[in-house]
């Protein structure tokens, strides 16, 4: 049987549509994955540089002759928050402090996981926190191990950064985010009393 030109053209168009329907989602998935990988690398790079600088600043601030206390998370956010916000598109940068308290930071240790940040501040939030591991005081009779050490300061950027992740594909609990946990640790100088 001979097909007419119109029928054949309709069949060809249908075939093209089916091919497009099969290939297009895969193509867009690959495109999104590539863009997202690039974005993620930029964001991670900014986080690494920022927490490294923050750890250095916090260690310096803790090493003053009049102060042995490292700055809290809010001071660190004031220090590096601006440069982080420029790189973390669509992500909120906050200090890891109790949002219900105004006087003090409230949270002493860093969140255990990115999920803990999401539980307090919601999705697509990166929290900056500071931990100071102070050495034990040196007793005269039986000094404890490491009692003369200089304090160790750790700054972490932890949470979920915004990403082009479709629903069901993300490492986060919600679509459009990827978990991040970047740390920088350094020793600070302690002046003799």
């Amino acid at each position: 049987m001979r097909l007419r030109w119109g029928r054949r053209s309709r069949r060809s168009a249908a075939q093209a549509t089916v091919e497009f329907a099969v290939v297009a989602p895969l193509f867009f998935l690959c495109l999104l994955a590539s863009i997202d990988a690039g974005l993620w690398a930029v964001q991670t790079s900014a986080e690494v540089a920022a927490v490294e600088q923050a750890a250095r600043d916090a260690a310096s601030a803790a090493a003053g002759p009049l102060s042995e206390t490292a700055p809290d998370a809010r001071t660190v956010v004031a220090d590096i928050g601006q440069r982080l916000r420029q790189a973390l598109f669509g992500t909120t940068v906050v200090a890891w402090c109790d949002p219900t308290r105004r006087d003090a930071c409230g949270f002493v240790s860093c969140p255990a996981s990115p999920g803990a940040v999401q539980a307090v501040f919601g999705p697509r939030v990166v929290a900056l926190c500071v931990e100071v591991d102070a050495p034990p005081p040196c007793a005269v009779t039986a000094p404890a191990a490491g009692c003369g050490d200089s304090p160790m300061v750790t700054v972490r950027a932890i949470g979920y950064v915004a990403a082009l992740v479709p629903p069901g594909f993300g490492a986060g609990t919600e679509a459009g985010e990827i978990a991040t946990d970047i740390a920088a640790t350094t020793h600070s100088l302690r002046f003799a009393p």
């Binding site: 490294e52 050490d149 200089s150 946990d181 970047i182 740390a183 920088a184 640790t185 350094t186």
Partner: peptide, 13 residues
Amino acid sequence: RYAAESFYGTMRS
């Protein structure tokens, strides 16, 4: 030791 502690503390990911 300080160097190692800083390195291990930073290189967590």
